[in-house]
């Protein structure tokens, strides 16, 4: 099908985008990479009065380091994340997660900000943001605010953004020296995950780990940071006993649903399997020096 009629508006500044969103009183959508929005328009699952194109907006495609934080503009495309040396070094989890998304064409257009605003419960970018405790910057009619990733995702395709707010930037803690891994189960590579588990950790003395953070995707209405499992793993050598305890804690936090891709029971079966797998990969990568 083809999209229903709408007004196409290009915004050259964030302020102009906010003003345009306000003008259409909640009945307009931002257009970033279009890789989720345009299918929804084509299927007429969405019929906004206006589409506000952010692609001519300058200044939201940066990757910079300052003050112990790595700031990534909302309009940075997957393909940039995939090849950025800075991302590979400072946000290794993001670099590991990107290749799981879609395919080459999708990654040439899709943006970090668009993926986060779309808030698919199985989306890899949302999973990485929650796992790493990222902070999201929103600009709206009342000014700027920072929203922790954990508060940003409220449910399937639902975020904390107000109708006239634009996501402009995502700040990650500088993860220099950290090792990261993603393990996911999908019907086909590049398809949305049935279960996706992300982990990042900082090597400590000997074989120990200073900290480990685990995130769970596709197992609840929104991506989850597994706080208890992460706490259990800090200071350990990821020995079998610690890994099993963490896997159990993850399973207890999860609240999977049955949907077209898999049953809740199957997802529960997969969670500990993939937690063990992702932690094994973390150890492997440390040993092999491939972060």
């Amino acid at each position: 099908m083809k999209p229903a009629p709408f007004e196409y508006v290009t915004a050259e500044t964030t302020e102009a985008a906010v003003a345009a969103l306000e003008r259409f009183e909640g009945n307009a959508r931002c257009l970033a990479g279009g890789q989720s929005l345009v299918p929804l328009l084509n299927m007429r699952l969405l019929r906004p009065a206006a589409v506000i194109d952010l692609n001519r907006l300058s200044g939201l495609d940066h990757v910079t380091v300052d003050d112990g934080r790595v700031r990534v503009g909302a309009l940075v495309r997957y393909s940039t994340l995939e090849t950025s040396a800075l991302v590979a070094e400072r946000i290794p989890l993001l670099a590991r997660a990107v290749p799981f998304v879609g395919d080459r064409q999708i990654r040439n257009r899709g943006t970090l900000g668009g993926a986060l605003c779309h808030a698919d419960p199985a989306g890899e970018m949302a999973l990485a943001a929650v796992t790493l405790g990222a902070s999201l910057r929103a600009v709206g009619p009342d000014g700027v605010r920072e929203v922790p990733a954990d508060d940003f995702f409220q449910g399937p395709y639902t975020t904390a953004l107000a109708p006239a707010e634009v996501l402009t930037e995502v700040a990650f803690l500088d993860g220099r020296g950290a090792v990261a891994a993603v393990a996911e189960h999908a019907r086909r590579h590049g398809d949305f995950a049935i279960v996706a588990i992300a982990a990042a950790g900082l090597p400590g003395p000997g074989d120990s780990w200073r900290w480990v953070r685990i995130g769970l995707g596709g197992v609840a209405p929104r991506p989850l940071y597994a706080a208890r499992a992460s706490a259990l793993l800090a200071g350990t050598r990821l020995e079998p006993k610690a890994v099993r305890a963490a896997a159990e804690a993850c399973l207890a936090d999860a609240d999977p649903a049955s949907d077209i891709r898999a049953s809740a029971e199957y997802r529960r079966h997969l969670i500990p399997v993939f937690v063990e797998r992702v932690l094994a990969e973390l150890r492997e990568r440390r040993r092999g020096g491939t972060r």
Binding site: Y8, L31, G34, D53, N55, Q105, R109
Partner: peptide
């Protein structure tokens, strides 16, 4: 020069 799916872009873009 980059591959994109032209069903996911609007002509004015």
């Amino acid at each position: 020069g980059q591959v994109v799916k032209s069903c996911l872009m609007l002509a004015p873009q």
